[in-house]
Amino acid sequence: MTMLTVWGRANSSNVQAVMWAIGELGLPYERHDVGHKFGGNDKPEFLAMNPNGTVPVVRDDGGEPLWESAAILRYLAWRYGEPPFWPAELAARAHVDKWAEWAKVEVAASFAKPVFWRVVRTAPADRDPQALDKALAVLGKKLDIAEAQLSRHAYLAGDDFTLADVQFGHILYRYFDIDIARPDRPALSGYYDRLTQRPAYREHVMVSYEDLRVV
């Protein structure tokens, strides 16, 4: 089997999504800490792989560098995934991809900077409680959609664990761990509990983010 090389720090949310998928797929890899306190993402050799200077970057057996976590996840699913994680039938695959895209564009984007950055990566004196309340209200509407879906199915795209769960579930460790008000969503909570039983989730997603905290 080929070897994946991953550039990106373990406590990057986007790196965590990619590493979780790698773990679920049982793929061999080596990972290099890059970004934040490790630096390196502004060096010419890194920018030659990803001119954005962002992580993760992945190379599969020395091939073309891949960046943007959602594109990397789809690549891994296409090359290494098997049904039901990545269905063979087009309509079923598009259904999974639909929920994966929703999780990235609607949920992760509504959580990362509007909520997580305000709570963890902003000094207490600079936090804006009203802005946080508004951001939580926006996020809550997205999570209500997930709650409805998870009330009918064990996983986000249906009754099987799929790529959509990687794209959605990787933010939930931080969502349930940080100091915010969380309305009761029993289906979402039960779903998160199921994710925490997965070894790859515990290894790659349930990672301390204390190095990111601004005090």
Score class of each variant (00 low, 15 high):
192 Y>E: 03
170 H>N: 08
112 A>I: 10
148 A>S: 11
116 F>N: 03
164 A>N: 05
191 Y>C: 12
77 A>R: 06
126 D>H: 09
112 A>R: 08
108 A>G: 10
91 A>C: 05
170 H>I: 06
163 L>C: 10
188 L>M: 05
159 D>I: 10
150 L>F: 00
203 E>D: 13
92 A>W: 00
126 D>T: 03
103 A>L: 05
104 K>L: 15
148 A>V: 13
88 A>L: 14
208 S>M: 03
173 Y>H: 14
109 A>T: 12
201 Y>M: 10
112 A>P: 03
206 M>S: 11
207 V>N: 06
144 D>T: 06
131 A>L: 10
135 A>M: 01
212 L>W: 05
140 G>H: 01
215 V>R: 10
208 S>W: 02
203 E>P: 07
212 L>I: 05
144 D>W: 03
124 P>F: 00
148 A>L: 02
120 V>I: 15
104 K>Q: 15
93 R>V: 14
111 F>L: 00
151 S>E: 07
182 R>K: 15
170 H>W: 11
131 A>Y: 02
178 I>A: 01
182 R>A: 11
130 Q>I: 10
195 L>A: 10
199 P>G: 11
162 T>S: 15
167 Q>E: 13
204 H>G: 00
105 V>H: 10
163 L>E: 11
86 W>G: 01
102 W>D: 07
187 A>T: 06
91 A>Y: 05
139 L>P: 13
134 K>Y: 00
142 K>L: 06
88 A>E: 15
215 V>Q: 14
129 P>I: 04
178 I>T: 09
206 M>E: 13
161 F>V: 09
158 G>D: 04
158 G>V: 00
159 D>L: 06
177 D>F: 02
96 V>P: 07
143 L>V: 06
86 W>I: 04
197 Q>R: 15
126 D>Q: 14
130 Q>M: 08
171 I>Q: 11
146 A>L: 08
137 A>N: 08
181 A>W: 02
211 D>M: 09
204 H>W: 10
149 Q>T: 06
94 A>P: 01
139 L>W: 07
165 D>L: 07
136 L>V: 05
77 A>F: 05
191 Y>T: 12
118 R>V: 06
121 R>T: 06
203 E>F: 03
82 E>A: 15
141 K>N: 11
141 K>Q: 13
156 L>Y: 04
121 R>H: 06
121 R>F: 07
200 A>G: 12
107 V>G: 04
171 I>N: 05
165 D>C: 09
160 D>C: 12
81 G>M: 01
106 E>V: 09
202 R>V: 13
129 P>T: 02
159 D>S: 13
152 R>F: 00
155 Y>N: 15
173 Y>V: 03
188 L>W: 01
113 K>M: 10
211 D>P: 08
93 R>F: 05
80 Y>E: 13
191 Y>R: 05
99 W>A: 05
153 H>I: 07
212 L>A: 04
124 P>C: 04
159 D>P: 11
182 R>Q: 14
77 A>L: 08
102 W>S: 07
148 A>H: 09
159 D>H: 13
121 R>K: 12
193 D>C: 01
179 D>F: 05
113 K>A: 11
91 A>K: 09
166 V>N: 03
132 L>C: 03
184 D>G: 01
94 A>H: 13
187 A>S: 14
170 H>F: 15
197 Q>D: 12
199 P>V: 10
103 A>Q: 06
151 S>V: 07
105 V>F: 12
81 G>S: 02
100 A>V: 02
111 F>G: 04
147 E>A: 04
114 P>H: 08
89 E>N: 13
98 K>D: 12
